[in-house]
């Protein structure tokens, strides 16, 4: 959120469990972040689980990039 305020298009990767915290922080800052939600947790994963999280995060980032392309922001 702090990068977005500085003019950087920021894709925020957040786990589903921590989404309420990030949403509440965004509300307090009166911003609408570009959220990429993945399953919780990210820490303590084995290699296969980490690959799943990476794939999910990448897919979310691509969705956000495509949205940017649609509105001509990128």
């Amino acid at each position: 959120m702090e990068l977005e305020r500085r003019g950087v298009v920021a894709f925020l990767v957040v786990t589903r469990t921590f989404l309420p915290l990030v949403a509440a922080q965004a509300k307090a800052r009166r911003v609408e972040p570009r959220l990429v939600v993945v399953d919780h947790p990210v820490g303590g994963l084995n290699e296969a689980e980490l690959v799943d999280r990476i794939d999910a995060a990448y897919a979310g980032v691509v969705r956000e990039l495509d949205k940017l392309d649609e509105v001509g922001e990128s």
Partner: peptide, 10 residues
């Protein structure tokens, strides 16, 4: 402060 358990207090 809004440090409510489950949302802001994690």
């Amino acid at each position: 402060g809004g440090a409510r358990p489950g949302t802001m207090d994690r």
